Computed example of a mutant assay.
Amino acid sequence: MQRKWFQYWFNSPFYHILYSQRDDAEAEFLIDNLSAYLKPEANSRILDIACGRGRHAVYLHKKGYDVTGIDLSEQSIKYAQQFEQKNLHFFVHDMRRLAFINYFDIALNMFTSFGYFETEKDHVNALKSFRKGLKADGTLVIDYFNTQKIIKNLTSQEIKTLDGIEFHLHKFVSDGKIIKHINFEHRNKVYAFEERVQAFTLADFERMFEKSGLHISATFGSYGLDPYDAEKSDRLILICKKA
């Protein structure tokens, strides 16, 4: 089977260089606010779906929870596994085919780690998989960018220099997706990657949740858990329960 863009890009060391400005303080701020809102019991089982290098999972474990992180990127999981200990584990896994049934109290999908697949069926299958992994009274949290604001403020061309690499970024909307082309040179070799994320709105999520047996119990528009505003919010944070 042909590898998809996310299997190449997220497994590349350059992905982590380009997004190295994502700081732990921001991740911890969101986790603190979600913990205060959801009030998980001590030792709650939490699944971090598309955990990357594990920054959310490691912090959740420090707060006393039993945390499992999964990601499709072998390189990210290899990095995260250095932090493993009792009640903190990381596995290479496809979010569409989770092997857990009625196991987790909370499943988290953070920092727009969704919307990568080509078809709605694939996204619904992923959501069904998330649902299946949750206990009957479990909670799913999805943190997505606010598509409307992103599209309204899209800068089509941008250059970022990080670690001596000049990343040329070209962003545009096509066929219901927000696409970013990433071009750069490193050690006399030319690289070209892309990101293709579905421009899902709240209405799209509502439709997919209905198909996958989930419903939204709350929405927020920022890591401070401010109310969601389609025009102004930076994020679309969805708190979901089994229907």
Rank of each mutant, 00 (worst) to 15 (best):
T219K: 13
G54R: 02
F172A: 11
H93N: 10
L202A: 09
Q81G: 08
Y228G: 03
F90E: 01
T155Y: 15
D32Y: 10
N146I: 01
G221H: 04
I239C: 06
W5V: 00
I151V: 09
F205W: 09
I101S: 10
K180N: 10
G133R: 03
D32S: 09
N87D: 14
Y59R: 02
E28M: 07
V67F: 03
Y37H: 14
R96Q: 08
G54W: 00
Y8R: 11
K160F: 14
G176A: 07
E206T: 07
V190A: 14
A57D: 00
K63R: 12
V141L: 10
D71E: 02
N153L: 13
C51W: 02
I165A: 06
F117C: 05
V141A: 04
Y19E: 12
I239Y: 08
K189M: 13
N153S: 15
Y8E: 14
Y59P: 03
I150K: 11
P40M: 06
G224L: 11
S73T: 02
G176C: 08
A230F: 08
K180Q: 11
Y223F: 10
F83G: 02
I159V: 15
F29S: 07
A36C: 15
H89E: 10
I151T: 02
L72Q: 07
K211Q: 14
A218T: 09
H123L: 09
G213L: 08
T219R: 13
K149G: 05
E158I: 15
F6P: 03
R96C: 05
L38T: 08
E84Y: 02
L127R: 02
F114P: 03
D163R: 13
V197S: 09
F145C: 05
K211G: 01
M110I: 05
F130D: 00
S73G: 01
S76A: 12
P227V: 09
G54Y: 00
L202K: 13
L18K: 03
F114L: 06
F130W: 03
H181I: 10
I142A: 01
S156D: 15
V92H: 01
K241N: 14
T201D: 00
A199I: 06
F172M: 12
Q198C: 13
E166G: 09
